[in-house]
Amino acid sequence: MTAVSTTSGTSFLTGRPLRLAVGGILILNGLFPALWILFTSLKGEPELLRKPITWLPQAPTLENYLRAFTDQPLLLFLFNSFMVALLSTIATLFVSTLAAYALARLNLRFRDLILSAIIAVSTFPLVTLLVPLFEIMRALGLLNTWAALILPYIVLSLPVCTLILVSFFEGIPRDLENAAMVDGCTRLGALFKVVVPLSAPGVFTAGILAFVNAWDEFLLALSFNSNPALRTLPVGITLYQGEFAFPWPVISAALIVGIVPVAVLIVIFQERVVSGLTSGGIKG
């Protein structure tokens, strides 16, 4: 009986039930805040203040979404965030692709040291970089422009994107590049015509991470841009609060509107992102 009990306990700790339980907890932890924001966005102010708290909206309304677009220029915030995130992602992918290819293919003398430096740089807290970056942007005359956000976002996303792409490029056989160069391709041509297409899951993964980081960033967007016409979504959402009041339903509606583009992007490229993360982990 003891042996059976021990085996049963070991089976639970290492088997499917435990994995399902852990997965369920992680899913609940990730979904609960989003669901709470969604439910709040569908409530009116009186219902939100009612006690005891009602989890589900008793009288759902879309008025908060209308106010989210009329109380503040939400469409402008979305446009600014999208353009900044898109341009920084494109630039990040281009630079990180070149850097990753050099680290993966060229016989660099201090390759391991460079990789260690990239990992170290990626651990710097953003707040420690705020003052130096602000002084650089002011010296370059870039404050209150998209460039003041795009350039730092590129630098901040480069380490992670480069490490992801290095892992993928190292898994591509060199013979494929050599064959392309024999057929007349330059090394750059072989990179973009052979290596990058074969590393599509890694490229998509790096791109999604860079885009989401730029879309969600708040500290730099608040510090480097005081022009109302150039505010991004995270900063714009803070403008809904009044001096003595917080319209939580309206703020929640604006948050849901900001979550939707990223959620749609991840759903569309879900398979490639998952493939990129798992393949990168195996190769690394």
Rank of each mutant, 00 (worst) to 15 (best):
A3N: 13
V4W: 01
S5D: 15
S5F: 12
T7R: 14
G9Q: 15
S11Y: 10
F12E: 12
G15M: 06
G15H: 01
R16P: 06
G24H: 09
I25Q: 04
L26V: 15
L26M: 14
L28N: 09
G30F: 09
L31V: 11
F32Q: 02
A34P: 00
L35R: 01
F39H: 08
T40N: 05
L42N: 00
R50H: 15
I53W: 14
W55A: 12
P57E: 11
A59P: 03
T61A: 10
L66G: 11
R67I: 04
R67F: 06
T70A: 12
T70G: 04
L74S: 05
L76R: 08
N80R: 05
F82R: 05
F82Q: 07
M83G: 04
A85C: 03
A85W: 05
L86W: 07
L87E: 06
T89Y: 04
T89K: 00
T92L: 01
T92S: 07
Y101W: 14
A102Y: 03
A104K: 03
N107A: 14
L108A: 05
L108E: 08
L113T: 10
I114C: 06
I114N: 08
L115D: 10
S116Q: 13
F124I: 15
F124H: 08
P125K: 12
P132N: 07
G141L: 10
G141I: 04
L142I: 02
L143A: 02
I150L: 05
L151K: 00
P152F: 03
P152R: 02
Y153C: 06
S157M: 00
L158W: 02
L158N: 02
L158F: 06
V160G: 09
V160I: 13
I172M: 09
D175K: 08
D175E: 15
D175G: 09
N178A: 09
N178M: 12
A179W: 03
A180R: 04
M181K: 12
M181G: 08
V182S: 13
C185K: 10
T186N: 08
L188F: 11
A190T: 08
L191V: 07
L191A: 08
L191T: 06
L198P: 01
S199Y: 02
S199W: 04
A200R: 07
A200H: 06
P201K: 03
A206F: 00
L209K: 03
L209A: 13
F211W: 07
V212I: 15
F218R: 06
F218D: 09
L220M: 14
L220Y: 12
N225K: 13
N227E: 09
A229L: 05
P234Q: 03
V235T: 08
I237R: 04
I237H: 05
L239M: 12
G242R: 01
F244P: 02
A245Q: 10
W248F: 08
P249K: 07
V250D: 01
A253M: 02
G258S: 02
I259H: 07
V260P: 01
P261E: 10
V262E: 14
V262N: 06
A263C: 02
A263V: 12
A263I: 11
L265D: 14
I268E: 13
F269I: 10
Q270F: 15
L277K: 00
T278H: 07
S279G: 10
G280F: 00
G281D: 04
K283L: 14
